[in-house]
């Protein structure tokens, strides 16, 4: 063979995964700023729900979540107390929905193919999506929390509780974002990518999000007690109420987040290199 050794010089640079994550995060935040509709939607959903559930249903529901509470203003206050943590969790879930849409949009266009033909690690490319989303969801959580405070919500959390809450919501956000990146990459279209995570939005309703699970019929209650969002919401509620936390429930919540996150990460990574229709 007269083949010249084309392989000799190394144009290939050493992998720098952290730098790649920063690059991709910057891209995703830029996209979020340029296309604010999606971010607005993230905040608008939980805000509307907060107003609706507190000012319309709250007067009656309050008595159901806090025994001895009078219907009306007292009920509304009690119900606000009960569902404000749920809505923070829902806000994080909504951010997952937006990352699924983002991943599906990338995959549908050619840009993902470009990334796949470059010598960069799938983990870095997709981590950018996840980190960007978590930052966005923290901002959205702050806005929803601000609205709840304006409506009279007074959490009893101290500084340590707040810190733990931020840590927990970041963990939840990372876990859900990885699962949703997988949903986005596996979706056949951008529309279906925005629909799949809807199931996640339903789960808090079928758990301890809006009413105590003890009030549910046996079958629903069994489901509520065994699905991830019940311990996740209970932990969020416990932290905001200033404790004490039920150690078993908190452990369950963290375990669910870790399982969802690790599975979502592995799934997303494998989907990145999967062959897809051009």
């Amino acid at each position: 063979m007269t083949t010249v050794d084309l392989a000799a010089p190394a144009t290939r640079t050493a992998p720098r995964p952290l730098a790649d994550v920063v690059t991709m995060t910057r891209r995703n935040l830029l996209r979020a700023v340029r296309y604010p509709g999606l971010t607005m939607f993230l905040v608008a959903g939980p805000l509307v729900m907060l107003l609706l559930f507190v000012y319309v249903f709250g007067g009656a529901f309050g008595a159901g979540v806090a025994p001895g509470v009078e219907p009306g203003a007292e009920g509304r206050a009690a119900y606000l107390d009960y569902i404000a943590p749920t809505l923070l969790v829902l806000t994080v879930v909504g951010a997952g929905q937006s990352v699924a849409i983002g991943a599906a949009m990338d995959a549908a266009g050619g840009i993902m193919a470009r990334f796949r033909t470059m010598a960069i690690s799938p983990g870095s490319v997709l981590s950018g999506q996840v980190v960007g989303t978590v930052l966005q969801s923290l901002a959205a959580v702050a806005l929803v929390l601000g609205a709840a405070l304006a409506m009279g919500y007074r959490p009893a959390a101290d500084a340590a509780d707040w810190l733990a809450l931020v840590g927990f919501l970041v963990l939840l956000g990372v876990a859900l974002a990885w699962a949703c990146v997988g949903m986005g990459l596996s979706a056949r279209s951008v529309e279906s990518a925005s629909n799949t995570p809807m199931i996640l939005l339903l789960l808090p309703f079928l758990g301890s999000g809006f009413v105590p699970v003890e009030t549910m019929p046996t079958a629903v209650r069994w489901f509520a007690e065994h699905q991830p969002f019940t311990p996740i919401i209970d932990t969020t509620r416990g932290l905001l109420a200033g404790g004490p936390l039920d150690a078993a429930v908190t452990a369950q919540a963290v375990a669910w987040c870790v399982v969802i996150g690790v599975a979502g990460y592995a799934w997303s990574r494998s989907l990145f290199r999967r062959e897809r229709r051009a």
């Binding site: 830029l30 996209r31 050619g110 470009r114 033909t117």
Partner: peptide, 26 residues
């Protein structure tokens, strides 16, 4: 690779698109 489907990010500027690739190539 310049594929049949265009591989640019519509929401970014031309310079930002190029910069993105330059950054990913370190």
């Amino acid at each position: 690779v310049t594929g049949q489907v265009s591989a640019v990010d519509d929401l970014l500027t031309g310079a930002e698109n190029l910069r993105l690739v330059a950054d990913l190539l370190h």
